[in-house]
């Protein structure tokens, strides 16, 4: 092998780098579909479209469960007593302070709509249980009040609110 001049050396290095770079770009591009395929497919996304729920048949004091995007949604028709209990609480005593007014739609105090999944590790809490008459999670003992706020136990946050709006006084659209 003859000695390689430095100019030729640079040209050769450039060629190697360019080839390697193009190869790396190709490999990265191949990874895109392999990762993307695990995301929800088009039919799953379409099935997650907003749903409408008729509230008329829900009696006062009753809690119904509907499903939206594979999640249970609790719709609670709260009694006067429950509303008052939720509004009276001293916010300073709450692990995740939030007034009841921030958890319902204005003028619809009697309707509480929350995602029914315990914020601890994803179990479904039981309705009308626990010392605050709200929800009690049987898995690890988290207790929620009538506003769906965490009061006791290992859960770090209140039951989240799904995006929803009142279409009429007795109908909501979730999503």
């Amino acid at each position: 092998m003859t000695t390689v001049s430095s100019a030729e050396h640079t040209r050769r290095d450039f060629l190697y780098i360019a080839t390697g770079a193009i190869g790396a770009v190709g490999a990265a591009a191949v990874v895109v579909p392999l990762i993307a395929q695990m995301n929800p497919d088009a039919s799953t996304i379409a099935a997650g479209a907003p749903i409408e729920v008729d509230l008329a048949p829900v009696a006062e004091g009753q809690i119904i469960k509907v499903f939206w995007r594979s999640k249970p949604i609790f719709i609670s028709h709260r009694s006067k007593k429950e509303i008052e209990a939720a509004q009276k609480v001293d916010l300073g005593s709450l692990p995740d302070p939030q007034p009841d007014s921030a958890r319902v739609k204005p003028g619809h105090d009697q309707w509480l709509v929350v995602v029914g999944i315990c914020t601890h590790l994803g179990c479904i809490p039981l309705a009308h249980q626990g010392q605050y008459e709200g929800w009690f999670c049987p898995c690890h003992g988290s207790v929620y009040d009538t506003s769906g706020r965490i009061r006791q136990g290992p859960a770090p946050a209140n039951l989240p609110l799904p995006p929803y709006a009142f279409v009429s006084d007795t109908k909501i659209r979730i999503g």
């Binding site: 579909p33 392999l34 395929q37």
Partner: peptide, 13 residues
């Protein structure tokens, strides 16, 4: 057919 139509890049795979 779901792979071909709905899965992300399913047709390609």
């Amino acid at each position: 057919e779901t792979i071909m139509r709905d899965v992300n890049y399913g047709w390609l795979l």
